[in-house]
Write a protein that binds this DNA or RNA. Structure first.
Length: 397
DNA sequence: AGTCCACAGGAAGGGCAGGCGA
DNA sequence: TCGCCTGCCCTTCCTGTGGACT
């Protein structure tokens, strides 16, 4: 082993770890308590309670911004519900509609749901009405109250329309032995305006809005989690406050607050510090943003990357759409890419703006037309990283 | 007040790939 | 297996726009 490597490992092994239970600060961790969501927990529990007596609970539609505890609260309540009613025959089915290859199409979603009841469904090939029958029969055979949780339901409706929800919310009319309750969860507050009013009224028998956490509540959440995740006295004063304040600035996102704390602790540990300090939170914030941007750059299609490469080639601080297009045409020529039209490039520029990679603003230059002014608001170091990615992925020159 | 520039951005439709379903 | 359908990416055509210039 190289001596430098040995030094790194030895150093790591000899240091006291900051983390006591690192798993408890990851996305997949289900906490035993959900502070500041008592009201929501009680409401959902009382809506679902009839299922213990074998009655059908009302469908629930929940919406709120990301990181407001929607999924955590629902899984907390349903987990407890199943535990309490061990022999009462309640089955929970959770589907995250954002998962690819699970809820991309009506067929896949139905196949996934049917498999939850032990049925063997081919990945493709069956007519949709056939699989609907399989699904209904499978449910009815169980003689249970089925609670189907559709997380990120807005993504599902975007992809496959609301026909599926219409059928699902009416399934009870055809069932003899079982009953189905649907819990829809959405980040998009205007989602219900986009669906059929009949679906809307049956899905939203009960409607709930999860409001964002404020900075004080976020601090409390972090403090309670802190004792599970970290060893004693490793979090410096002001760290929790800073993480909470930064996350509250966004939209009261608890996930963001926990991420900040986790990344800050990882940075502290990597730097050999025995304590997590405020400066680590600053570094964590810029690392999270940096990672997000680099990830976005990596996953862009080639044409979009060519547009970005053209923007990076500009020496001036600001450029206009027309200039970018001229450079882009040259870049295409040099790299053997078929150039897109200006109309399309204009859309790609707005997409890059939406991703936060560039900053584009529509301005008017009076006699000299209306255009977009484009700036790169990134640190030199990050720009260099982006260049490296573009060169290594597509050999741009 | 009217003109004009350089686009923004909406609408419609073509082409293609991949998935569906009989 | 193969025709059909759908979604995505893209082009073409078009109207709209803010403000400098005349």
């Amino acid at each position: 082993m190289q001596t430098s490597l040995k030094a790194i490992f030895d150093n790591y092994a000899s240091k006291k770890s900051i983390f006591k239970n690192k798993k408890a600060i990851t996305i997949s961790y289900n906490p035993d308590e959900l502070p500041h969501r008592e009201k929501e927990i009680n409401t959902i529990a009382s809506i679902l309670a009839p299922s213990i007596r074998g009655e059908k609970p009302s469908n629930i539609f929940i919406y709120g911004k990301p990181g407001t505890g929607k999924t955590a609260v629902v899984s907390y309540v349903t987990k407890n519900l199943v535990e309490i009613s061990k022999d009462k025959k309640i089955k929970i089915v959770y589907i995250n509609c954002k998962m690819r290859k699970v809820a991309d199409t009506e067929y896949r979603l139905l196949a996934q749901l049917t498999r939850e009841f032990g049925e063997d469904v081919p990945a493709t090939g069956l007519p949709t009405d056939h699989i609907y029958n399989m699904f209904f029969n499978a449910i009815d055979k169980t003689e249970q109250t089925i609670i189907i949780i559709l997380d990120e339901i807005d993504v599902l409706v975007d992809k496959i329309g609301d026909g599926f929800l219409y059928n699902l919310t009416r399934v009870n009319e055809d069932l003899k032995n079982s009953q189905v309750c649907v819990i829809g969860i959405s980040n998009n507050l205007s989602f219900t305006n986009e669906i059929d009013p009949r679906v809307k009224s049956s899905l939203s028998e009960e409607e709930m809005i999860f409001s964002p956490y404020n900075a004080t509540q976020l601090q409390d959440i972090l403090r309670r989690r802190m004792s599970i995740v970290f060893n004693e006295n490793v979090i410096d004063e002001g760290v929790i406050e800073k993480c909470a304040a930064l996350a509250a600035q966004e939209h009261g996102d608890a996930r963001r607050a926990l991420d900040l704390l986790r990344v800050a602790a990882e940075i502290a540990e990597r730097n050999g510090s025995e304590k997590v300090k405020e400066e680590h939170v600053d570094k964590a914030e810029s690392k999270i943003d940096k990672d997000r941007i680099l990830e976005a750059v990596k996953t862009q299609p080639r044409q979009s990357q060519a547009v970005l490469w053209s923007i990076l080639k500009v020496k001036e601080e600001e450029v206009y759409t027309g200039d970018i297009y001229n450079i882009y045409e040259k870049v295409c020529l040099e790299n053997g890419i078929k150039p897109l039209t200006q109309r399309r490039v204009s859309d790609l520029i707005s997409e890059l703006d939406l991703l936060g990679i560039i900053n584009a603003k529509v301005i008017s230059k009076g006699r000299y037309g209306r255009t977009r002014i484009v700036k790169l608001n990134l640190q030199e170091q990050l720009v260099n990283k982006i260049r490296e990615i573009l060169v290594s992925q597509y050999y741009f020159q």
